[in-house]
Design a protein around this nucleic acid. Structure first.
Length: 234
DNA sequence: GCGACAG
DNA sequence: ATCTTGTCGC
Protein backbone atom coordinates (compact mmCIF):
# COMPACT_ATOMS: atom_id res chain seq x y z
CA UNK A 1 0.00 0.00 0.00
CA UNK A 2 1.93 2.99 -1.41
CA UNK A 3 -0.28 5.59 0.20
CA UNK A 4 0.90 6.13 3.72
CA UNK A 5 0.83 9.66 4.99
CA UNK A 6 0.67 11.04 8.50
CA UNK A 7 -2.81 11.46 9.96
CA UNK A 8 -3.43 15.22 9.78
CA UNK A 9 -4.40 16.94 13.00
CA UNK A 10 -8.19 17.03 13.36
CA UNK A 11 -8.47 20.80 13.03
CA UNK A 12 -6.30 20.81 9.90
CA UNK A 13 -9.09 19.00 8.09
CA UNK A 14 -12.18 19.52 10.21
CA UNK A 15 -12.18 22.97 11.86
CA UNK A 16 -15.29 23.77 13.89
CA UNK A 17 -15.96 27.05 12.09
CA UNK A 18 -14.76 29.38 9.30
CA UNK A 19 -12.69 31.43 11.71
CA UNK A 20 -10.71 28.40 12.84
CA UNK A 21 -10.40 27.25 9.23
CA UNK A 22 -8.77 30.52 8.19
CA UNK A 23 -6.38 30.28 11.11
CA UNK A 24 -5.36 26.80 9.95
CA UNK A 25 -4.63 28.18 6.47
CA UNK A 26 -2.52 31.00 7.88
CA UNK A 27 -0.54 28.52 9.98
CA UNK A 28 0.09 26.02 7.16
CA UNK A 29 0.71 28.50 4.33
CA UNK A 30 4.41 28.98 5.23
CA UNK A 31 5.01 25.28 4.50
CA UNK A 32 4.33 25.66 0.77
CA UNK A 33 7.42 25.11 -1.38
CA UNK A 34 7.74 26.31 -4.96
CA UNK A 35 10.35 24.46 -7.01
CA UNK A 36 10.91 23.14 -10.55
CA UNK A 37 9.32 19.80 -11.39
CA UNK A 38 11.41 17.59 -13.67
CA UNK A 39 9.14 16.63 -16.61
CA UNK A 40 11.10 13.42 -17.04
CA UNK A 41 10.20 12.34 -13.54
CA UNK A 42 6.47 12.63 -14.17
CA UNK A 43 5.08 9.23 -15.14
CA UNK A 44 1.78 9.12 -13.30
CA UNK A 45 -0.58 12.09 -12.91
CA UNK A 46 -3.63 12.02 -10.66
CA UNK A 47 -6.70 14.13 -11.44
CA UNK A 48 -9.04 14.90 -8.52
CA UNK A 49 -12.65 16.06 -8.49
CA UNK A 50 -15.82 16.01 -6.40
CA UNK A 51 -19.48 15.85 -7.50
CA UNK A 52 -22.44 16.74 -5.28
CA UNK A 53 -25.86 15.15 -4.84
CA UNK A 54 -28.82 16.04 -2.64
CA UNK A 55 -27.28 14.81 0.60
CA UNK A 56 -23.98 13.30 -0.35
CA UNK A 57 -20.89 13.81 -2.44
CA UNK A 58 -18.63 11.57 -4.46
CA UNK A 59 -14.90 12.22 -4.62
CA UNK A 60 -12.90 10.64 -7.42
CA UNK A 61 -9.30 10.22 -8.46
CA UNK A 62 -8.12 9.15 -11.90
CA UNK A 63 -4.45 8.32 -12.43
CA UNK A 64 -3.17 8.71 -15.99
CA UNK A 65 0.05 7.68 -17.66
CA UNK A 66 1.63 11.03 -18.53
CA UNK A 67 2.91 9.73 -21.86
CA UNK A 68 -0.22 8.08 -23.22
CA UNK A 69 -2.87 9.82 -21.08
CA UNK A 70 -4.46 6.41 -20.55
CA UNK A 71 -6.12 5.76 -17.19
CA UNK A 72 -4.05 3.30 -15.18
CA UNK A 73 -5.91 3.49 -11.87
CA UNK A 74 -8.98 5.10 -10.38
CA UNK A 75 -11.04 5.20 -7.20
CA UNK A 76 -14.12 6.86 -5.74
CA UNK A 77 -15.60 7.42 -2.30
CA UNK A 78 -19.10 8.37 -1.26
CA UNK A 79 -19.48 10.60 1.81
CA UNK A 80 -21.55 13.26 3.51
CA UNK A 81 -20.26 16.86 3.28
CA UNK A 82 -18.56 17.75 6.57
CA UNK A 83 -18.15 21.47 5.90
CA UNK A 84 -20.24 24.00 3.92
CA UNK A 85 -18.97 25.69 0.79
CA UNK A 86 -17.45 28.99 1.78
CA UNK A 87 -15.41 30.95 -0.77
CA UNK A 88 -11.79 30.57 0.29
CA UNK A 89 -12.44 27.48 2.39
CA UNK A 90 -13.13 24.92 -0.32
CA UNK A 91 -10.40 22.62 0.97
CA UNK A 92 -12.24 21.92 4.22
CA UNK A 93 -15.17 20.61 2.21
CA UNK A 94 -13.30 18.54 -0.38
CA UNK A 95 -10.05 17.47 1.25
CA UNK A 96 -11.44 14.84 3.66
CA UNK A 97 -13.09 12.72 0.93
CA UNK A 98 -10.19 13.32 -1.47
CA UNK A 99 -7.66 11.98 1.04
CA UNK A 100 -9.81 8.89 1.52
CA UNK A 101 -9.90 8.35 -2.23
CA UNK A 102 -6.13 8.64 -2.51
CA UNK A 103 -5.73 5.93 0.13
CA UNK A 104 -7.71 3.61 -2.12
CA UNK A 105 -5.40 3.98 -5.12
CA UNK A 106 -3.04 1.10 -5.74
CA UNK A 107 -0.39 3.28 -7.36
CA UNK A 108 1.65 6.29 -6.23
CA UNK A 109 1.09 9.36 -8.49
CA UNK A 110 4.12 11.58 -9.21
CA UNK A 111 1.97 14.71 -9.27
CA UNK A 112 -1.61 15.62 -8.38
CA UNK A 113 -3.91 18.03 -10.25
CA UNK A 114 -6.69 19.72 -8.29
CA UNK A 115 -9.85 21.37 -9.61
CA UNK A 116 -9.35 24.75 -7.96
CA UNK A 117 -6.57 27.06 -6.81
CA UNK A 118 -3.26 26.83 -5.04
CA UNK A 119 -1.46 30.10 -4.28
CA UNK A 120 -4.10 32.09 -6.18
CA UNK A 121 -6.05 32.34 -2.95
CA UNK A 122 -6.88 35.15 -0.47
CA UNK A 123 -4.43 33.69 2.07
CA UNK A 124 -2.21 32.01 -0.54
CA UNK A 125 -3.39 28.58 0.57
CA UNK A 126 -6.02 27.11 -1.68
CA UNK A 127 -7.02 23.46 -2.05
CA UNK A 128 -3.93 22.53 -4.09
CA UNK A 129 -1.58 23.97 -1.45
CA UNK A 130 -3.43 22.28 1.38
CA UNK A 131 -3.30 18.88 -0.28
CA UNK A 132 0.33 19.36 -1.23
CA UNK A 133 1.41 20.29 2.27
CA UNK A 134 -0.46 17.40 3.87
CA UNK A 135 1.02 14.88 1.42
CA UNK A 136 4.31 16.74 0.92
CA UNK A 137 4.02 15.78 -2.72
CA UNK A 138 3.86 17.84 -5.99
CA UNK A 139 0.40 19.35 -6.49
CA UNK A 140 -0.94 22.04 -8.81
CA UNK A 141 -4.32 23.66 -9.22
CA UNK A 142 -6.34 24.34 -12.37
CA UNK A 143 -9.52 26.41 -12.11
CA UNK A 144 -12.14 27.35 -14.69
CA UNK A 145 -12.94 30.83 -13.36
CA UNK A 146 -11.16 33.64 -11.55
CA UNK A 147 -11.21 33.97 -7.80
CA UNK A 148 -8.53 36.45 -6.83
CA UNK A 149 -6.21 38.59 -8.90
CA UNK A 150 -6.31 40.21 -12.31
CA UNK A 151 -4.61 39.36 -15.58
CA UNK A 152 -4.39 40.51 -19.15
CA UNK A 153 -6.24 38.62 -21.88
CA UNK A 154 -3.92 35.88 -23.21
CA UNK A 155 -3.29 35.69 -26.95
CA UNK A 156 -5.72 33.58 -29.02
CA UNK A 157 -3.32 30.69 -29.59
CA UNK A 158 -2.83 27.56 -27.51
CA UNK A 159 0.06 28.15 -25.13
CA UNK A 160 -0.54 31.89 -24.73
CA UNK A 161 -0.58 33.01 -21.12
CA UNK A 162 -0.79 36.02 -18.83
CA UNK A 163 0.28 36.36 -15.22
CA UNK A 164 -2.45 36.38 -12.60
CA UNK A 165 -1.52 39.18 -10.21
CA UNK A 166 -2.99 39.83 -6.77
CA UNK A 167 -1.74 42.23 -4.15
CA UNK A 168 1.27 43.03 -6.31
CA UNK A 169 2.44 39.43 -6.59
CA UNK A 170 2.14 36.80 -9.29
CA UNK A 171 -0.10 34.11 -7.81
CA UNK A 172 -0.88 32.12 -10.93
CA UNK A 173 -1.25 32.17 -14.69
CA UNK A 174 -4.19 32.51 -17.03
CA UNK A 175 -3.39 29.88 -19.68
CA UNK A 176 -4.98 29.25 -23.07
CA UNK A 177 -4.79 25.51 -23.70
CA UNK A 178 -6.83 25.42 -26.93
CA UNK A 179 -6.88 27.89 -29.85
CA UNK A 180 -9.69 30.39 -29.46
CA UNK A 181 -11.07 28.70 -26.35
CA UNK A 182 -11.58 30.40 -22.99
CA UNK A 183 -8.40 30.02 -20.86
CA UNK A 184 -7.99 28.21 -17.53
CA UNK A 185 -6.25 29.45 -14.38
CA UNK A 186 -3.17 27.58 -13.20
CA UNK A 187 -1.49 28.05 -9.84
CA UNK A 188 1.17 26.38 -7.74
CA UNK A 189 0.04 23.99 -5.06
CA UNK A 190 3.27 22.56 -3.64
CA UNK A 191 6.66 21.35 -4.86
CA UNK A 192 6.19 22.69 -8.41
CA UNK A 193 6.69 26.13 -9.94
CA UNK A 194 4.43 28.07 -12.30
CA UNK A 195 6.40 27.25 -15.44
CA UNK A 196 6.46 23.53 -14.64
CA UNK A 197 2.77 23.59 -13.78
CA UNK A 198 1.73 25.37 -16.98
CA UNK A 199 3.91 23.14 -19.16
CA UNK A 200 2.34 20.07 -17.59
CA UNK A 201 -1.21 21.38 -17.94
CA UNK A 202 -0.57 21.98 -21.64
CA UNK A 203 0.71 18.41 -22.07
CA UNK A 204 -2.36 17.13 -20.26
CA UNK A 205 -4.77 19.15 -22.44
CA UNK A 206 -4.31 17.82 -26.00
CA UNK A 207 -7.92 18.33 -27.08
CA UNK A 208 -10.22 19.89 -24.52
CA UNK A 209 -10.22 22.95 -22.27
CA UNK A 210 -10.26 20.77 -19.18
CA UNK A 211 -7.10 18.69 -18.82
CA UNK A 212 -7.49 14.93 -19.13
CA UNK A 213 -6.81 13.94 -15.50
CA UNK A 214 -9.57 16.23 -14.20
CA UNK A 215 -11.92 15.35 -17.04
CA UNK A 216 -11.61 11.69 -16.17
CA UNK A 217 -12.03 12.30 -12.45
CA UNK A 218 -15.06 14.51 -13.15
CA UNK A 219 -16.63 11.89 -15.38
CA UNK A 220 -15.93 9.19 -12.82
CA UNK A 221 -17.42 11.09 -9.88
CA UNK A 222 -20.55 11.97 -11.86
CA UNK A 223 -21.09 8.40 -12.99
CA UNK A 224 -20.69 7.09 -9.47
CA UNK A 225 -23.07 9.75 -8.12
CA UNK A 226 -25.67 8.93 -10.76
CA UNK A 227 -25.51 5.27 -9.83
CA UNK A 228 -26.99 6.10 -6.43
CA UNK A 229 -30.56 6.13 -5.01
CA UNK A 230 -30.67 9.80 -4.04
CA UNK A 231 -27.78 10.72 -6.25
CA UNK A 232 -29.73 13.58 -7.78
CA UNK A 233 -30.90 16.94 -6.57
CA UNK A 234 -34.55 17.36 -5.46
C1' DG B 1 -20.92 50.07 3.66
C1' DC B 2 -21.07 47.43 -0.97
C1' DG B 3 -19.90 44.00 -4.28
C1' DA B 4 -17.44 39.88 -5.44
C1' DC B 5 -16.67 35.24 -4.26
C1' DA B 6 -12.47 28.28 -6.61
C1' DG B 7 -16.30 24.23 -6.27
C1' DA C 1 -21.17 22.41 -7.49
C1' DT C 2 -26.22 21.64 -9.54
C1' DC C 3 -30.61 22.99 -12.15
C1' DT C 4 -31.92 23.74 -17.00
C1' DT C 5 -33.66 23.77 -23.59
C1' DG C 6 -32.36 24.47 -27.46
C1' DT C 7 -28.66 25.21 -30.59
C1' DC C 8 -24.34 25.09 -33.24
C1' DG C 9 -20.53 22.26 -34.88
C1' DC C 10 -17.60 18.16 -35.85
Amino acid sequence: MPHVFPEPAREELRPSDPSEARAVQDRLAPRVRTEPLDPGGVRLVAGLDVSYGATELVAAAAVLDAATLEVVAQATVRAAPSFPYVPGLLAFRELPPLLTVLERLDVEPDVYVCDGYGLAHPRRFGLACHLGVLLDRPVLGVAKTAFVGRCAEPGPARGSAADLVDGGEVVGRCLRVQDGVKPVYVSVGHRVDLDSACALVLRLSPRYRICEPIRRADRLSRRELAATPDGKHP
